[in-house]
């Protein structure tokens, strides 16, 4: 699905990614459905995601999505549904117009209606986006990300601003999507959400992959009941138990 080879990115003097290698196999067999990309602020999570989306141009290295090179290409993004971190839309368009707009751009095959029902957005369809609350905008954002049947979903802080009901619906939705054999990349700060949802964790630190593996492995490793604590231990006890700059831990 995604191959990342020796990915470097620096912004001026600041090196954000220092040779990241990641491989999400194309088949669902053995691969995990939901991958949480974690790491402290400034560790390069967002940059990594944006590199995959083609929004940030790597200084070095290559990325392939479904065997298509990302560099200088745009059609591979048909395979990706993206949920940006901040949900801000053209203020004077209505929700319906925005949905039409994105479908206009991406072409046919979008199915917003079930999602609109799921998140209870029907009353807002004719409202201007500028008049919506943050939570409602985030729901619109979710609709936009999920309405196409893409094999890869990239969600940047999907839980931001969601009420508990919507959060439960999101989780259910993610599980459904996973069941369809999709790859889902998520960045988030909510460890409970990761614990609930993630099949795999990629932990970034200072531009490198510090840990990759199943969350329960990590908990076992640090003998903690909660993932939050295990992550905290992971941060404090660096370098990682195996001693290398990059620790890929499998169980």
């Amino acid at each position: 699905m995604i191959q990342i080879q020796n990915l470097h990115k620096s912004f001026g003097p600041l090196q954000v990614l220092k040779g990241v290698n990641l491989d999400f196999p194309a088949t669902a067999s053995g691969a995990s459905g939901i991958t949480a990309i974690l790491g402290p602020n400034g560790s390069g999570k967002t940059t990594l995601i944006k590199c995959i989306l083609g929004m940030v141009i790597p200084s070095e290295g290559e990325i392939f999505v479904k065997d298509q090179r990302v560099k200088g290409n745009w059609s591979y993004r048909h395979n990706i549904g993206y949920l940006p971190q901040i949900a801000r839309f053209p203020e004077n368009l209505s929700v319906q117009e925005l949905l039409d707009f994105i479908q206009d751009l991406r072409g046919t095959g979008g199915q917003p209606e079930p999602l609109i029902q799921r998140f209870g957005l029907e009353p807002f369809l004719t409202k201007r986006l500028g008049h919506l609350s943050g939570g409602t905008r985030q729901k619109v954002n979710l609709v936009l990300a999920f309405m196409y049947d893409c094999p890869l979903l990239i969600l940047d802080e999907p839980t931001a601003g969601l009420d508990p009901v919507a959060l439960i619906q999101l989780k259910a939705l993610l599980k459904e999507e996973k069941a369809k054999g999709k790859h889902i990349l998520i960045t988030t700060h909510i460890m409970d959400f990761v614990e609930d949802m993630a099949d795999e964790i990629v932990f970034l630190l200072e531009g490198n992959i510090h840990f990759r593996g199943r969350p329960d492995f990590l908990k076992k490793q640090y003998q903690s009941r909660k993932l939050e604590n295990a992550i905290a231990c992971l941060l404090q006890k660096m370098p990682a138990p195996s001693g290398g700059g990059v620790a890929i831990l499998e169980d």
Partner: peptide, 16 residues
Amino acid sequence: NSREFVELLLAQPIRR
């Protein structure tokens, strides 16, 4: 003002 929305657009299959 439209920078965040542009991020959404950039992730769509269209030219920059």
